[in-house]
Write a protein that binds this DNA or RNA. Structure first.
Length: 540
DNA sequence: ATAACATGTGACC
DNA sequence: TGGTCACCCTGTTA
């Protein structure tokens, strides 16, 4: 599994965004404190201390009542506490499990969690589609040696830009031909173009959209230009080189007439064969736009419950007539483009909660992977067989939170077995004193957690992740930062120790204190790569 | 170190 | 359909 490095990467560089950007409406300064978890650290404090503070504050005034008992921040009830204790989060026992959502236990005790060392663990295999599948999986599969090649996991930070965007990152896209160009969209509607080989070469186009850039897709006919769908109700078509942008459609030609009429565009995809741009809005409708004649409307179809947001669209990789949508009505739906009519989907894939994303597998398109807000990934193995309940449900922490871009599990487009997917994790784990939110690599054919990738310098959640279509590179959007990961190069000594298992990136024993993420001055990765967990080990 | 805040949006009636 | 209401591991600034 030793990664064969292709292009020669420069040594690790972490670039802090200087405040030059016109985008930045914020003031200045540093990344907000490593590990600092805003809410609720003081749990550790003793009761007496609490009292004292209170007295001090009230300067001797008779307090009405002094909360001598610990009060839970979550449920407000006395007798227990919840929140961070150091880098470990203590769950409120009055709430259902934050992972699997079942009552009766906390996240720590969740059966989906405790089975392996740490992290998220799959649900047991559930309802196989048909008897043969079931038998195969149950009886034969364990004895059949896997023929699929070992996964290559980009688990080490190669470079990053912090505060690149002025708001949180909402989507990422690799350039279709230029391997080192990463596009990123943010909540403000800005479009970032970053050459991560030359870390300093980056630009933000601030005038493409006026609010959330929800999805991007490169034009199949013009690889220098990208479509973007935004909550401002427009699709933009932008030349990456020049930044010149035109508006393909505007669903709000009359401007703001109140929230009940303002259309926002979410799911988008391009159907090359048909020359169509597909885009969906927050009222349940799919819009077809002829990409050749630009602007010409083909049709508008209700694809999800009226009034509900359609957050994802995906065209089948091999069959131009097949399309997949997903949205807030708890469904993902498969459509035949030739028979697009209101409510005439081929299959409706039911979920318990909102479906953040639904994707065909990238090569054959025979599988579907969805991410739902019920903290489960769902997999349908063969969309050409009977479409019943999912073949697998994998419990995984990716809760919805108003401050976060919704999590989306993304396929590895390079995996010939179409079983590797990446998704950020919401729940943090205490990694030697630092609370980190790993990025998980799941083998969705087994439900196994293959790898959890993290770095002590990246303390924010990474809901947005994309694997490179050709290289062993992972791009992450974490708050306002972008991070590029590549496989850790293992020295021989380290290699034998860490052996077959996927190496965790965040071995913090050797954490390099003071090397704050984003300090350009001292980042200079002396010797063997510097920043990052790695190395050092062998020298002992 | 910690408190306050900005801020959507999904669920439910 | 509309209105109200929670909302637990944010992230950032003061």
């Amino acid at each position: 599994m030793a990664p064969q490095t292709r292009s020669s990467f420069p040594s690790v560089v972490i670039e802090r965004e200087t405040d030059t950007e016109e985008s930045s409406s914020f003031s200045e300064e540093e990344e907000g404190g490593g590990g600092g978890k805003g809410a609720g650290e003081e749990d550790a404090e003793s009761e007496s201390e609490n009292v004292k503070t209170y007295e001090e504050r009230t300067k001797g005034k008779a307090p009405i009542s002094i909360p001598l008992k610990k009060v839970c921040k979550v449920c407000k009830k006395p007798g227990h506490e919840a929140g961070f204790k150091g880098a470990t989060y203590i769950d409120c026992p009055m709430k259902p499990c934050f992972l699997c959502k079942m009552p009766g236990h906390t996240t720590i005790m969740c059966p989906h969690r405790v089975a392996t060392e740490h992290g998220v663990v799959p649900a047991p295999h559930r309802s196989a589609g048909n008897p043969i599948d079931f038998i195969f999986n149950r009886q034969l599969s364990p004895r059949v040696r896997p023929i699929k090649p070992a996964f290559v996991i980009p688990n080490e930070v190669k470079c990053a830009v912090t505060r690149y965007h002025s708001r949180r990152v909402t989507c990422l896209e690799f350039h279709p031909t230029n391997n080192n160009i990463l596009l990123s969209g943010d909540k403000k509607g800005q479009l970032g173009i970053w050459d991560f080989h030359k870390v300093h070469e980056r630009i933000i186009y601030g005038n493409v959209h006026t609010c959330i850039l929800n999805n991007m897709k490169f034009s199949p006919t013009n690889s220098g230009s990208v479509y973007a769908a935004s909550s401002d109700g427009t699709i933009s078509f932008t030349d990456v080189e020049t930044g010149i942008s035109s508006s393909l459609v505007n669903l709000n030609p009359d401007g703001w007439q109140g929230p009940s009429s303002w259309k926002m565009l979410y799911g988008m995809d391009v159907n090359a064969e048909k020359g169509l741009v597909l885009v969906a809005d927050n009222f349940g409708y799919l819009h077809l736009v002829d990409s050749r004649s630009n602007n010409k409307w083909e049709d508008t179809i209700l694809v999800h419950k009226k009034g509900s947001k359609v957050v994802g669209l995906h065209c089948h990789p091999l069959q131009p007539d097949i399309m997949l949508s997903c949205g807030n009505d708890h469904f993902a739906r498969i459509w035949d483009m030739r028979k697009l009519q209101d409510g005439c989907s081929i299959h409706d894939l039911e979920h318990k909660r909102v479906v953040n994303s639904a994707y065909f597998s990238p090569l054959s398109g025979s599988k579907i992977l969805t991410t739902s807000q019920d903290n489960r990934l769902r997999v349908w193995d063969s969309i050409f067989g009977s479409m019943g309940p999912p073949n697998r449900e994998i419990v995984h922490s990716h809760d919805f939170n108003r401050h976060l871009t919704p999590f989306r599990a993304e396929w590895d487009p390079k995996d010939p077995s179409e079983s590797l997917a990446v998704i950020g994790r919401y729940i943090s784990e205490n990694y030697n004193g630092t609370a980190l939110h790993p990025i998980d690599f799941m083998d969705i054919s087994t439900g196994q957690l293959v790898a959890e990738v993290m770095d002590p310098n990246i303390t924010t959640i990474s809901p947005v992740n994309k694997l490179h279509p050709r290289e062993d590179v992972l791009a992450s959007g974490s708050s306002r930062s972008l991070v590029i990961w590549r496989p850790k190069e293992q020295s021989e000594s380290v290699k034998e120790k860490e052996d077959q298992k996927i190496v965790l990136c965040g071995k913090l024993e050797k954490k390099r204190h003071g090397k704050k993420f984003g300090n350009e001055s001292d980042d200079d990765s002396d010797h063997d790569g510097g920043f990052g967990p790695v190395s050092k080990k062998g020298k002992a």
